[in-house]
Amino acid sequence: MSTTTKSAAAKADADAKKIAESPLTAEQVSAMNPLQIIAITDAVLDLTEKVLSLVNDAKKGGIITTEQQLAVQTKYASLKTRADGQFAGEHWRIAPPASVQQTPPAEFLQPGQPG
């Protein structure tokens, strides 16, 4: 394994450990609502899993098979042409802040009021 890959893998391992060992006092935990706890746990678990799988890939030796190459190329082609709706999902839209007053629908406007 190359030095950079090794150091990245070590960094990822350290990050994952840091997350696992991140000290939360009972006070801090009780100050959080269940939604916040779920959000944080969910994200940390998802990302740690992703990083660990990448670390495993990075540690593997041998040859990158024709199938693996094809999978990467297919993903790239899809991203290039936005074939799978990349950047188009609801989560990619910037919603206005909750405090911004929206223009009311036309049926709620008074006669003569600008829409």
Partner: peptide
């Protein structure tokens, strides 16, 4: 962690050879 994931995704194959028959 995201940054590490991004870096690793790019170098996951850095010590591996490509099968020359691949795309």
């Amino acid at each position: 962690v995201l940054s590490a994931a991004l870096f690793l995704s790019g170098c996951a194959g850095s010590n591996r050879q490509l099968d020359p028959a691949g795309v």
